[in-house]
Amino acid sequence: MTLHSTEFSQKIRDPDQPLLKVEGLTKRYGPRIGCLDVSFDLYPGEVLGIVGESGSGKSTLLSCLAGHQRADLGRIAYDGRDVLGMSETERRRLGRTDWAFVHQNPRDGLRMGVSAGGNVGERLMAVGARHYGDIRDKAQDWLGRVEIASDRIDDRPSAFSGGMQQRLQIARNLVTGPRLVFMDEPTGGLDVSVQARLLDLLRGLVRDLGLSVIIVTHDLAVVRLLAHRLMVMKSGRVVEQGLTDQVLDDPQHAYTQLLVSSVLQV
């Protein structure tokens, strides 16, 4: 198995077909609702924002989509393939080739005891790369793209600042050229100037690589900058969805109106 023979990336991309099609996705925690009857389509190159208060089911939805948790009901089709019906081997392969997951806390997504280069190289080695020089070159290239100095390649992430760790996590996820990226509060816990740079970087990467992104956040500024479309969740249900600017400028649902008006104006 070589890097280039991964079957997923070989498919011809049809921009008119949704990359991800979700129908009636439901997850319950016993009697409580995680998320209820969520449906949406995500097209190639599209960025979908999911906003809502804490406990509204955003993260549950994301982890069900990414296969970290098993949904109780519903269907997920990725590129025409039924994700929930896949064997675990296939799903995990998808998870390290075609998909990427950026955690809120970089410590969850990085190996803290392994150097930055090893962190970026892990996904390459996981899909069969066995040439040290090539792996290192590619790691070097990706560190450059996320603005980490090349002389930090052998440092461990524990020696990095929070913003650098988050950028390293992004490099580690994007190195295998995924088509769909899940992001859970990628800017949470960073100060505003670092947030701004990270958002700038993300926007550039998303545009250059034509990524499809599902981004969960409670920061409306993040979705305003990044997302094309927006889904507003409350108590596990989607209460409103539409184009980002439309939802934020002309909110219809009472909860969305509350959310938009709660943003602090500086």
Partner: peptide, 16 residues
């Protein structure tokens, strides 16, 4: 699932 990429990460770290 034969996911042995991590074993090579150890060898990578050695060389690095």
């Amino acid at each position: 699932l034969e996911e042995y990429g991590l074993m090579h990460v150890k060898l990578y770290e050695d060389i690095a």
